[in-house]
Design a protein around this nucleic acid. Sequence first.
DNA 1: ACTATTTCGTCAACCACGTTGACTATCTTA
DNA 2: TAAGATAGTCAACGTGGTTGACGAAATAGT
Lengths: 158, 158
Amino acid sequence: MATPDPPRPGFALPLLLLAGFRTLIDDLHAELAREGHPELRPLHGFVLQAVGADGTTATELGQRLGISKQAAGKTVDRLVGVGYLERVDDPTDARRRLVRVTPRGADGLRRSAEIFDRLRAQWADTLGPERVTAMEDDLGTMASANWFRLDVPGWFGG
Amino acid sequence: MATPDPPRPGFALPLLLLAGFRTLIDDLHAELAREGHPELRPLHGFVLQAVGADGTTATELGQRLGISKQAAGKTVDRLVGVGYLERVDDPTDARRRLVRVTPRGADGLRRSAEIFDRLRAQWADTLGPERVTAMEDDLGTMASANWFRLDVPGWFGG
DNA sequence: ACTATTTCGTCAACCACGTTGACTATCTTA
DNA sequence: TAAGATAGTCAACGTGGTTGACGAAATAGT
């Protein structure tokens, strides 16, 4: 019922990668909700991290995430709405509106990192640390080009 | 520029899984476009496969994909629009509208499988076959619950 | 055989996330 | 100082998801 057909040889790999990713993300957000961050959506962690401790502008954020400045601006709007980001005027350039992580945002980010560390430790318990490391190494080899490109309506292509 | 900060230990894994998935999906669709299927979007392959050779209904498709029947219906509409699926009346039940893969849809599906097989072979060439198999085994172990759950606005949580 | 319930499909409204194009305000440069 | 580049926003739109409501058809129960 959840598994229709045994996928063909090549079909399994993408499905497994997606399932692994979703497993981590779902577990993360279940735990984040328990720890006081129920509004944090999967995308938000990536965005908060991309904003970084120094802050950025919407345009630069868009470049970092591989999306348009308009899309980045809308995402910032939502994060501001739930209190994870704030906008401040740049005193040196009246066009720019600096985007900064709020204390609440920093808390969510810190907890995300801790939870991910714990989840990784769980994987290492189940699979063995060397298998997890091997997986990271191998994925790093194959996927180096797609690091942090989130330019996907609905998270996929085009 | 594509890599903002070296991610924290636990942060790398989900990012790598996503990047690996996206690499495969992007490569697949680049090749599919070359082979005459430029309209095929990433989601579509999963849907076509979930419809299967025997056809289904929108409601059952929704269950298979873990999404609502309405969402499944809309996706079917789009696939019908580009000629990959067709709807036919069920003579035994006037409520049901059978969804079937068209010949064009079957061609896209067959090519997807072939391309995925080739991409997997590329991974095996680069990493060694046993590393790819190990990755599949390990991911299968960790992610068995999320097989074919696509219930994500924009492919994430929520 | 006739209600009562369930099921299938669809409509409508909405949300999240992406796109492009156009436009203003501001900063930079020649 | 005029001309050009850059930051942000608005508007319209596309895709993929949600819930709620509803009619038509099948099924169950009496």
